[in-house]
Design a protein around this nucleic acid. Sequence first.
DNA 1: TTGAAAGCGCTAACAT
DNA 2: ATGTTAGCGCTTTCAA
Lengths: 338, 338
Amino acid sequence: MAITIRDIAREAGVSRTTVSRVLNDSGYVKEETRQKVEEAINKLNYSPNAIARSLSTSKTNTIGVVVPEINNPFFGEIVSGISQEADKAGLNIILYNTDNKEHKELKALQLLKEQRIQGILITPSYTEGTSNQKYLKTIDRTDVPVVILDGFVKYNDFSGVFIDQVNGGFNATETLIKAGHRKIAIINGVMETRPARDRHSGFLAALEKYGIQHNEDYEFNAHYQWKESYEITKHILSMENPPTAVFVTSNMMILGCIKALNELGKKAPDDLAIIGFDNVDMLNVIGMNVSYVYGPSFEMGIKGMQMLNEVIERRKNGIYNNLNDILMPQLILKGSEK
Amino acid sequence: MAITIRDIAREAGVSRTTVSRVLNDSGYVKEETRQKVEEAINKLNYSPNAIARSLSTSKTNTIGVVVPEINNPFFGEIVSGISQEADKAGLNIILYNTDNKEHKELKALQLLKEQRIQGILITPSYTEGTSNQKYLKTIDRTDVPVVILDGFVKYNDFSGVFIDQVNGGFNATETLIKAGHRKIAIINGVMETRPARDRHSGFLAALEKYGIQHNEDYEFNAHYQWKESYEITKHILSMENPPTAVFVTSNMMILGCIKALNELGKKAPDDLAIIGFDNVDMLNVIGMNVSYVYGPSFEMGIKGMQMLNEVIERRKNGIYNNLNDILMPQLILKGSEK
DNA sequence: TTGAAAGCGCTAACAT
DNA sequence: ATGTTAGCGCTTTCAA
């Protein structure tokens, strides 16, 4: 690629300015001249240099996207949503996958800053410490706008799209209660993470609303691994005074729960009613009929990209307020909650 | 961001060249001067402009990645592998998600060309016509090297990493045969796609090797939907002379197959032995124990990125041969194939 | 309706 | 060991 606007100008017998004009549909240019230029462009198979254009205009038409695990469909959906909207807005995406590593996230932010992108959409890794968050805040203040997309931690003091985990926990639990259950267990993630705490709050709130005393023996925590909840479920089924229903707060843990039921020849909801969190649609396809609440990830990507555009627009007008959008998880009922 | 190399130069009392030198660790620079410059950089919180650098050096340190559906974990794994290697090589990724739309793919390629990226990694959409392929070839020849990562169609005349679908089909089938089956059905994708044909070839080759006559009644095709294979499986189970085993060539279709078995109160492998294609590990977690062969997508991403680097290197030396790597699918046996 | 010229921020000979 | 100068390819006043 050595062909530049100069070559086109020469070929068409006009100035570089004129070529630039037809390239960008800006300013006046005689139809005849335009034709000549376009011919030259086709003849020489010219494609404008976006880098040079960016340098000249100080606009990259590019945004940065940072996610912890692109191979996890949850984030895949998010990126898919972002991509769809970015397309419409004529924006390119520079993607960084951080593997949940804090140092990779930091590196990504630094590189993004150097690329002079127009904005950043980030789903912070749940392992992230406060230092990255501070750096992110600096970037947001002094360089480019940041929008948080957050399945995990709710960031204050940033623009962002979040999922109402409390609401999810509440609805899941209320569903079990309305189905007649009063002895309800929860298999939750580790309480160090915000969503685990939030879902737990929702769980408690539902119990309270219906005047149900929470039984501490019915409360379990695990690290989102199926094996843990597999053991927990086996334990539950062997309790003297077992719960009749359980709220399982992640897709992998639902699997372990079902494995345990299967192995013991038990069935949901008869032996134990179940409601999960996250998308476990695969199970429903094969007829397992597991109910769940899930956070709309694709929608989060879409909303996030739209929000970023809005933030960019507002800043042009000197408005620096943060925008926030909270999405409600959706309840998908298949029968296992009865 | 208005701070440039100029400001640093002024602040440190040196020339821009010197600043550039410390920035890039190139050329000689007295320790004392370096200190001064670095202080200025920190003081002014300067971050170099990658765009300007790219324009000056004609190197973007960026590659383009084009996939059909980033929300599908198969492609997520690929991108994850690419990302890991790109990181090591200090390359950024511009990502385009084409939604399996031909026009989006074309657009992506054009934009990528304008971005002056160093190379392209693409998993062509299976809906793609020949026109995009031609354009891709042009790009590969005249602009930037292209490496194909291919779950679907094998492109000739390009560098690429492919999965040996024939081998996958053969091994799956041979496994069933070795387990004692002679009446073997296949639920395959549509034969218009290359992988369906390839898997079919492997299937036939295995039958032939063991002297088994292929029964045309045992051959089925569908559009990779679970519902279709659900119906097909029900049909199979009601045949007068039913097969004792079935090779199901995609993850979604395996689900339909199992749903049918479940509903009819049948079990694999006793009522019907099964072997699948693609990763269906979720089923195994809940104790369904479904065997399958699958193409190593993460590895494909890694190998692809490495290959692209190699191609780039070779071209610098005027070598334009295509590189090829064919990955063998892996056999995961869980019991359903017996 | 068109062109000349300056400049975006950086790097890379070439001097010194 | 450091600085001067000339670009990289494009856009954008300003003039004509």
